[in-house]
Design a protein around this nucleic acid. Structure first.
Lengths: 194, 194
DNA sequence: TCTACATTAAGGGTATTTCTTAAACTTGTT
DNA sequence: AACAAGTTTAAGAAATACCCTTAATGTAGA
C-alpha cells in the first residue's frame, strides 16, 4: 500500500524499520479518507488514535468561553497528530482535531501502539525522538510568544512554514499566533508598506 | 548514594529500573553541587548534560536583543532540564540554564545517555513518556498564552505551581508569563482588591 | 555585626500594542 | 445564483509596555 510506504519512509529519518516491524505496523495502522471540515477528534471524546498525515492538513484547537478557536498545532504531510493527554489517559479531550483539506491519514489505536511499543523497542526509540523534536518546536514557540510582538511572530511563522502560509487562510494563522484576524490584516498592511 | 536513590524513585513513576539498570545508571550519572546564580549552560556553549534536579531550582531562559530575559522553563526537585536541541545536535545553545537557589543535581553526559538508550530499552521507554508529558505541559501553556489575558495566566500559574510561586521572585514569574514585572505588580494589586 | 550594594516590590503617568465592533468587499463552495 | 468564509478598513476601548520613583528586603564584604 502506497500510504504505508510513505510511513515507512518517514521512519527512515529515525531508526529505519526492518521487515518484521513493517509487517507488524501494517497490520495495526488503518488508512482513512477524511473530508474537509471533518473532525477526527471532538471535545468530550477520548482521543483513540495516533494519526499520521499522508496528505492534506489538520488543525488541533481549543475553544474558549466566548466560542473563539485557538489553534495549538497544524499537521500536514508526514506529521503526527494526537491529543496525547487524552490518548494515554483515556480521558475526554478538551481539544478538537479537524481537517482543513480533504485528507488521507493512517491511524494507530492505543492498544495497537502499546503492542508495538512492548514488542519492538524501536518504536519506543523512534517516538522518543519524535517527541523530543516536538518539545524543541514547542519551546521555541513559547519563547517566541513571550518575547516577540505579533508582527515578529508572524514573520517567523512565514519563515518557518512558508508552504503552510500559502495553503491556509489568514484567519487560521491569526488563531495560531494568538491574535485577531483584523490585527493580522493590519500587520500585513504594515509589512506591505515597507 | 542518597541522590541516586531519589533518581531511582523518580523512575518508579514509569517503568521501574531493575538492579542492573540501576547499577549502569549510577556509573553514568555525576552528582554536582551548584551555587545560586551559577550557570550549568551558557549561550554559545553546547548543552553536554541531561540534568536531574535533586534539590534546588533552575531556570532556562533566552535573552532578547534588548537584554531582557525570557524564561522558558523552571525545574525544581525531581524534574529534568536540558536544552534538548543543543544536547542532541551538539550545536551551541541559544539559551541559558541558571540556578535560582543552591542546588544539587545529577548529570548524564550525552554519550553515557546514548549508551543507556542503546543497551537498556527501558530508558528509551521512560524518556519517551517523560517527553510526552512535557509535550502535554507545553501544549497547555501555548493554549494559555494564545487564549488568555495576563491575569488569567497568572492565576493558573498560581494554581498549577503553588510551591514555586512562594519560592521565586515575582520578576521571574513575570518573565515566565511573558509580561513586565510592573504589569504583574498591577495584576496582583487588582486581585488583592477583589 | 554593620554597612554598602543589589534585588525586589509597588505605584503613577504616558506611550504602544492589540482587541472589539461594525461594515464593506472579495473569494470560495455548493 | 446564493450563501458561507475570508479579508480589509476604521474608530474607539482595553490591555500591556515603558520609564521613573520610592520603599522594603536581601546579600556580601569589611
Amino acid at each position: 500500500m502506497q500510504s504505508l510506504n510513505q510511513l515507512f519512509t518517514h521512519f527512515e529519518n529515525y531508526l529505519p524499520l526492518d521487515e518484521v516491524e513493517k509487517k507488524e505496523l501494517s497490520h495495526r495502522a488503518v488508512e482513512r479518507n477524511i473530508k474537509r471540515r471533518q473532525f477526527i477528534l471532538q471535545e468530550g471524546d477520548v482521543c483513540k488514535y495516533f494519526t499520521f498525515v499522508i496528505s492534506g492538513c489538520f488543525k488541533m484547537y481549543g475553544v474558549d468561553k466566548n466560542g473563539t478557536d485557538h489553534i495549538i498545532q497544524f499537521a500536514s504531510e508526514n506529521e503526527w497528530i494526537a491529543e496525547i493527554g487524552s490518548f494515554y489517559s483515556n480521558k475526554p479531550s478538551r481539544l478538537y482535531i479537524e481537517a482543513m483539506e480533504p485528507s488521507v491519514i493512517l491511524q494507530i489505536e492505543r492498544l495497537n501502539l502499546f503492542h508495538l511499543y512492548s514488542n519492538f523497542p524501536k518504536f519506543d526509540r523512534n517516538f522518543r525522538v519524535i517527541m523530543e523534536n516536538k518539545v524543541i518546536d514547542l519551546e521555541n514557540r513559547i519563547l517566541q510568544n513571550i518575547s516577540s510582538t505579533a508582527e515578529e511572530r508572524y514573520q517567523s511563522f512565514l519563515e518557518q512554514y512558508p508552504q503552510l502560509a500559502n495553503r491556509i487562510p489568514n484567519t487560521q494563522i491569526a488563531s495560531y499566533l494568538g491574535i485577531t484576524p483584523e490585527f493580522l490584516s493590519k500587520i500585513r498592511n504594515n509589512i506591505a508598506k515597507k
